[in-house]
Amino acid sequence: EADPRLIESLSQMLSMGFSDEGGWLTRLLQTKNYDIGAALDTIQY
């Protein structure tokens, strides 16, 4: 079963217009401990 923190973070990022095609966003959020800010910083640079 998916981590509730992942579901919450992923749904927030999907609502911002990101896609999780191929699961890349799920993996990114997992490596950033479900921190949306850290994930966005990684995507920006």
Rank of each mutant, 00 (worst) to 15 (best):
I7Y: 13
Q44D: 10
Y45E: 15
G17Y: 03
Y34R: 01
G22K: 07
S11Y: 13
S19R: 10
E8V: 12
L14I: 11
E1Q: 13
L29V: 02
S19G: 09
T26R: 08
W24P: 00
T42F: 15
S19L: 10
Y34G: 05
D41G: 08
E21Y: 09
Q30R: 13
D41K: 15
L40A: 03
M13C: 05
E8L: 12
Q30H: 11
Y34I: 02
P4Y: 12
W24I: 05
S9Y: 06
A2D: 14
Q44K: 14
N33H: 09
S15H: 09
I7P: 06
M13F: 07
L6A: 07
Y45F: 13
R27H: 09
Y34K: 02
T26H: 04
I7N: 10
G22E: 08
G17T: 02
G17I: 03
L25K: 00
Q30V: 15
Q44W: 15
A38Y: 06
A38E: 10
A39Y: 03
L10C: 03
L6K: 04
G37N: 15
G22S: 09
Q44P: 06
N33Y: 07
A39E: 01
S11V: 11
Q44R: 15
L28C: 06
E21V: 12
G37A: 14
P4M: 11
P4D: 10
A39Q: 01
E8T: 11
L29A: 00
N33K: 09
L14K: 11
M16V: 04
S15W: 06
S19T: 14
R5D: 05
E21N: 11
L25R: 01
W24D: 04
L29S: 01
G17F: 03
L25D: 00
G37T: 14
Q30T: 13
Y34C: 06
N33G: 11
R27I: 09
Y34N: 06
G17W: 03
M16T: 02
G37K: 15
D3I: 06
G22R: 07
D35Y: 04
L25W: 01
I36F: 05
W24M: 05
G17Q: 01
I43E: 01
K32T: 13
S9L: 08
N33F: 09
Y34M: 05
T26C: 04
D35G: 03
T26S: 12
A38G: 06
Q30M: 14
A2F: 12
R5N: 07
E8G: 08
I43M: 07
T42K: 08
K32H: 12
N33W: 06
Q30P: 03
G23L: 08
M13I: 06
W24N: 04
T42A: 15
S15K: 14
L29Y: 01
E21T: 11
S11K: 13
M13Y: 02
D41T: 12
D35K: 04
Q30S: 09
R5T: 05
D35R: 04
I43V: 05
A39L: 06
D20C: 04
D35W: 04
I43T: 03
G22N: 11
L6Y: 08
E1M: 12
G17S: 03
T31M: 15
S19P: 04
D35I: 06
A2Q: 13
Q12P: 00
N33L: 09
G23D: 04
R27K: 11
G22I: 04
A38W: 07
L28K: 00
F18N: 00
T42M: 11
I7V: 13
S11A: 14
S9A: 14
F18T: 00
S19Y: 08
R27C: 09
D20K: 02
P4N: 10
W24C: 07
A2M: 14
L6R: 04
T31C: 15
M13T: 01
L28G: 00
G22P: 01
L28V: 06
I7L: 13
G37F: 14
R5M: 08
M16N: 03
W24R: 05
S9C: 10
I36A: 04
M13R: 01
M13N: 00
Q30Y: 10
K32R: 08
L10I: 08
S19V: 11
T26N: 03
S11Q: 13
W24L: 05
P4R: 11
G23C: 07
I7M: 12
I7H: 10
A38C: 07
M16E: 03
S9V: 10
D3T: 06
F18V: 03
L6G: 03
D20M: 03
S15T: 10
L10S: 00
S15F: 08
T42E: 15
D41L: 15
L29P: 00
Q12R: 13
R5V: 06
R27S: 09
S11C: 11
L10A: 01
W24G: 03
M13Q: 00
I36M: 07
T26I: 06
S9H: 04
I43C: 09
L10T: 01
